[in-house]
Amino acid sequence: DLALMFHVGMNIEDKTGLFAEVARVLAPGGTFALFDVMRLSDEPLNFPFPWAETSGFSFVDPPNMYREAAEKAGFELVAERNRLDFALDFFNRVFARMEKAGGPPPLGIHLLMGGTAKDKLQNYVTHISAGDIAPVEMIFRAPD
């Protein structure tokens, strides 16, 4: 009845295949909700990012690529929301807490990102701030 995808699409090159597979396993009339970082400009991206060290592992596509892939699979777009402001607010709060604490917390996602965590987060925030990328929510309904 429901499929969710959270920060995964940036690592999937074949969006058409992704939506076709979701359509295959989702119940008729089911809901597919996703939250992915999407491309808003044609500006080159500076790597690394939290999801990819290099461009060869990053497939950040614009919202229209998701919409087109969804339409090919028979999905109807129910809702779409750009979460750029949400992301900026989130990172401002995180960086303020880190500054107050004198550094990152002892446990956190930065540990999974390894030695390039600071560069990954900085590139992400820089490109969000410039409007090159943004997290986008999309909700689709599968055909009945």
Rank of each mutant, 00 (worst) to 15 (best):
D1F: 08
L2V: 11
L2K: 06
A3E: 11
A3K: 06
A3G: 12
A3Q: 08
L4N: 13
M5S: 15
H7T: 07
I12K: 04
I12Y: 05
I12F: 00
E13C: 09
T16V: 14
T16Y: 08
T16I: 07
L18V: 15
A20K: 10
A23E: 08
A23G: 08
A23Q: 12
L26M: 07
L26N: 12
G29I: 05
G30Y: 06
G30K: 00
A33P: 01
L34K: 02
D36V: 01
D36Q: 11
M38S: 14
R39P: 03
S41F: 04
S41Q: 10
P44K: 09
P44I: 12
L45D: 02
F47C: 00
F47R: 04
F47I: 08
P48T: 02
P48S: 03
F49I: 00
F49R: 02
P50F: 10
P50H: 12
W51D: 00
E53Q: 11
T54G: 02
T54P: 04
G56C: 06
F57N: 06
V60A: 07
D61N: 11
D61F: 11
D61S: 14
P63C: 09
P63Y: 12
P63G: 09
P63M: 06
N64K: 10
N64F: 11
N64W: 14
M65L: 03
Y66N: 14
R67F: 05
E68S: 10
A70G: 15
A70H: 14
A70M: 07
K72Y: 00
K72N: 05
A73W: 05
A73G: 00
A73T: 04
G74Q: 04
F75W: 03
L77C: 12
V78R: 11
V78K: 09
A79M: 04
E80G: 08
E80T: 01
E80H: 05
N82W: 05
R83D: 03
L84H: 15
D85T: 07
F86P: 00
L88S: 06
L88M: 15
L88A: 07
D89A: 09
R93M: 03
R93H: 14
V94H: 04
F95L: 14
F95A: 08
R97Y: 01
M98V: 07
K100Y: 08
K100Q: 15
K100L: 12
A101M: 07
A101P: 05
G102C: 04
P105E: 09
P106W: 03
G108W: 11
G108C: 06
G108D: 09
H110E: 04
H110T: 06
H110D: 11
L111T: 12
L111G: 03
M113Y: 06
G114Q: 06
G115H: 04
A117N: 07
K118I: 02
D119T: 11
D119M: 01
Q122D: 15
N123R: 13
Y124I: 00
V125E: 10
V125A: 11
V125M: 10
T126R: 15
I128V: 12
A134V: 04
P135V: 07
P135F: 15
P135G: 08
P135I: 09
M138Y: 13
M138F: 15
R141I: 02
A142K: 15
P143E: 03
D144V: 09
